[in-house]
Design a protein around this nucleic acid. Structure first.
Lengths: 145, 145
DNA sequence: AGTTATGGTCTCGTTTCGTTACCAAGGATC
DNA sequence: GATCCTTGGTAACGAAACGAGACCATAACT
């Protein structure tokens, strides 16, 4: 039943699903799971956005701040530091006044872009479906209440 | 300069990067950006994990709770509700006692699995690099202090 | 002297998160 | 027939993370 359901959809490599199964059997917690470890960083509110913004070329702190728009300086600093710590982003300070600081993707950071692009394309393509689902869900709730 | 840097890396489709550029020019905030809208949900602490766990077959609430391990019932409920609202997961209640509730991926949920798998493979492959970068960063900090 | 610009940090109030206790319903146990 | 067990949650509360805004150092420019 589940198999039929799955089989007519774009396939997820069986190998990956086996990974999932395996983790599941072991009980996935943060300590033993690389995906958890990485996703907890990458998967926060701002990281992906910032990696995207740096895709083509390095950017200054203020440029990032403006590009993202509704991020606060506090969170921008924090996110950039985390990305730097994880080796995805490189920080360069030019000791001028006023100071100038560039952020650029490292090779590792660049390598993240491809999988992220996959996700982004999906998000773009399915956005309408998701919004429709949301509306339907919220209507139901309203009716039930 | 940046171009050379980029060109010898696994390529990200130029089309995608243009997307990034465009968003950037417009100033990406939550309201006008589908990616933001979607990523804010998908990209929370638990959603991806749960989608992974449901990859092969539907699971009961308690099974998910056990599989993830360090998620609380509160957050599990909350995350599942959000996924259901976004149409990625379907909730089925069997009115027995004690109650039995199944969660399964919808077609939409399944379609998310492929891009997520890409990310997961990346995380798995690059985990060591990231940890190494972290260690190096933390050592530097310690020395500087 | 006063203004402007950059790349932050500090503080404080609000949200969100995680932990624990609790609940309802019926079947099994004694 | 009173008690206990199980499932799938919810309620309440303290802890941690987040967001808005004020503030700062430096020097060039007016």
């Amino acid at each position: 039943m589940t198999r039929e359901h799955v089989s007519n959809l774009p396939e997820v490599p069986e190998e990956i699903i086996q990974h999932f199964d395996q983790w599941q059997a072991e009980g996935v917690d943060a300590s033993n799971c690389p995906v958890r470890d990485v996703l907890d960083r990458i998967g926060d509110k701002w990281s992906v956005l910032i990696l995207m913004m740096l895709a083509r070329e390095p950017k200054r702190f203020s440029a990032l701040n403006k590009a993202v728009g509704d991020i606060s300086k506090r969170m921008l600093t924090q996110t950039l530091r985390a990305l730097q710590r994880d080796g995805l982003v490189e920080r360069t300070v030019y000791p001028t006044t006023p100071p100038r600081v560039d952020y650029r993707l490292t090779d590792l950071g660049h390598s993240a872009l491809r999988p992220l692009a996959g996700l982004i394309v999906w998000a773009d393509k399915r956005h309408d479906d998701i919004r429709a689902a949301r509306d339907a869900f919220d209507r139901q709730e309203t009716v039930a209440a």
